[in-house]
Design a protein around this nucleic acid. Structure first.
Lengths: 211, 211, 211, 211
DNA sequence: TATGAATGAGTTTTCATTCAT
DNA sequence: AATGAATGAAAACTCATTCAT
């Protein structure tokens, strides 16, 4: 679902493009945003030239990965809203299954360069907006059903969302799993309607966060 | 409080060393963990040669920055425990004033290399342990005074701590301030004793997280 | 009049070939002898594959351009000899209308590679010889009619010819026109029979110049 | 005599810089304007890094070579004016000893890129202007002494000058020598006062040629 | 000791040429 | 036969690290 100016690629070229984006995701995740382009090419099983034909520089690759991740996350978010019985359940699933975004966001934080590249990309921007809109709906519905504290805005949820995204890499697999769940549970408890301590200032919108 | 094998430097050499560490912090923060060594030297106002005399390689610099940040954070944590009236207050201050650690932790996440360097440094390790011990004390005290939910361990608090560290860079200054406060408040609500929903698994220790 | 082993091409293939040679001329002229093959293909409106089918490598293209230019120049030279009333007039027209050769010669000078390619091409070589023979005739005739100084050989005229070819690119169109004419006039004055100062050494033949 | 922003280099650095410029001249002359940077470095006996420290890209190198050549040519031109007995003699020496400029000019013509780089360089521009002024003086003096035809301007001489610069590379050494001399002699005959055929239009100034 | 010049290995990037569609 | 995608060798360029001044 990534689109740069795609003039409809030949089937094989399309396949290669996808393999490259996938490889870039993996490489960025495991070796950081500065992994040699050649390593990405090797992982994708193509020559560097092929990679450069599609992505003129590292920035284009970062953009493509971000677009891909964001658009997938959006798809998932929509599914959550549709399939879950209550708004609160949708919110929980939303927060829990944020993994699709993990990579790009981690990437985004990693280098100032990547950050600015992603920030300036209209396509990613669009996904971000759409997601924010969806989030706003869910927030309102959850507050209407009385599960979410009322002094909360979509921006606040987005922040929690982003915080959860950036899970610390924890050595032991099982611990990581548990830690993630507990963290989420603590956050959810902080978001629940009952028994909340009043928050400072007013509910944040996405705009407040520059989202 | 940074120590590599510090043979007590002459006053001016000492000054140089400090300027370099400070410059490195700034550069890492603004240009990422891969800023050219030369840029750091320029920022510090010294030649690369001088920098290399003190820090044989990039790893040494990263280590020094991490040590510096961790030790400052430790000092601050001790002050919090000493000066605050209740354990809960200490915890709040602890979580709120985590800024000193922000840079190194962000750095730590940025590149896998930096991560391993920091992980393997005994001096940072020591600060980390000390801080974890302190945190354990405060957790127990806060639970004893009934302010902190009982199904929480020092590891859980550490995770929340780290999460808060990685605040998203938010464009508008005021929003960033407010957002940070609200996020903290939500988390604190999630940590409060009253009205908590049971958490999954058991309380996490620092060891669980590899800390 | 270009021939490599031309097995008589189909009309459309022929058209393609010509478009490529023309495009190559343009590209060489505007971007130098090192313009990417792909740019030439794009200018010609064909794919690289098509270009490579006709011209196995850059050398073949250079050769083709040179052949084309030389053969056109030869045609023009013959017309000059036939149509002008006096040998001097033929010489003047010869020198003035050298533009057809401009490109290839500029190209020839541009890169040592191109130089050697052109030098070794039998077809271009043949045109060169024919032109030199023609030039020798005209020189003799002009000297016989008393218009050209006697201490001049075909080689000398060729040199002047080449010199005039390499007109400096002059910004303003009108100036360029005038400058060219004046330059030519000065040279012609230097070549005239009357009043010439004796030249050093002996008349040069084409062979002297490696032509 | 080349200057870019030279903050006074250390003696050894200066020496290296000069070696690089010299090597570049040689390499450009023998292998064209596209000779690999590494070859230039090797010829100069330095590492590529050293070359890139001084000259951030090929353009800087081209500029430096052009500056060097132009400024040397200027020095030579001044000497000619000072040391020769008559203006005509100065002019002859001027035209004959143009060799200093040969390389840069040939280079300048070779690639459109190089051409624009040289054209836009203020330092070279300055040398060009100075030389043009000098030429104007000599032209006036020579016309006053009755040796140079009166319908000639500094621009015309400059054109002849440039034409002579671009001597074709002639295979045999001795022929090249002779050919150059004869060419010069023919041109001089064309420039002489006596017996000249009126030239078209009016004397050209440097401005007319965009010089 | 401080400085910044030199080095060259590692990366990025381009482009001639081949080949599948 | 035409096209343009893929390839990889070659060239450009960067920067960590060493060393002469």
């Amino acid at each position: 679902m990534s689109s740069e100016r795609e003039p409809v690629l030949r089937a094989d070229a399309r396949r290669n493009r996808d393999r490259i984006v996938t490889a870039a995701k993996e490489c960025f995740a495991s070796h950081g945003a500065d992994v040699p382009v050649e390593e990405i090419a090797r992982t994708a099983g193509v020559g560097v030239g092929t990679l450069y034909r599609r992505f003129p520089d590292r920035g284009a690759l970062i953009r493509a990965v971000a677009r891909d991740s964001f658009s997938r996350a959006l798809v998932e978010a929509r599914a959550a809203v549709e399939e879950e019985a209550t708004a609160w359940q949708a919110l929980v699933r939303f927060l829990r299954q944020s993994s699709e975004l993990q990579l790009s966001v981690r990437l985004a934080m990693a280098s100032p360069l990547a950050r600015s590249i992603i920030k300036d990309d209209p396509s990613t921007e669009q996904s971000r907006r759409a997601m924010l809109g969806l989030l706003g709906d869910v927030v309102r519905m959850a507050q209407a059903e009385g599960s979410l504290r009322p002094d909360i805005g979509a921006g606040d949820v987005a922040m929690v969302f982003v915080l959860l995204l950036r899970q610390v890499p924890i050595p032991r697999e099982e611990s990581a799993q548990v830690a993630g769940e507990r963290c989420l549970a603590i956050m959810l408890d902080g978001l629940r309607a009952r028994s909340a301590t009043p928050l400072p200032a007013r509910p944040l919108s996405g705009a407040d966060l520059g989202l």
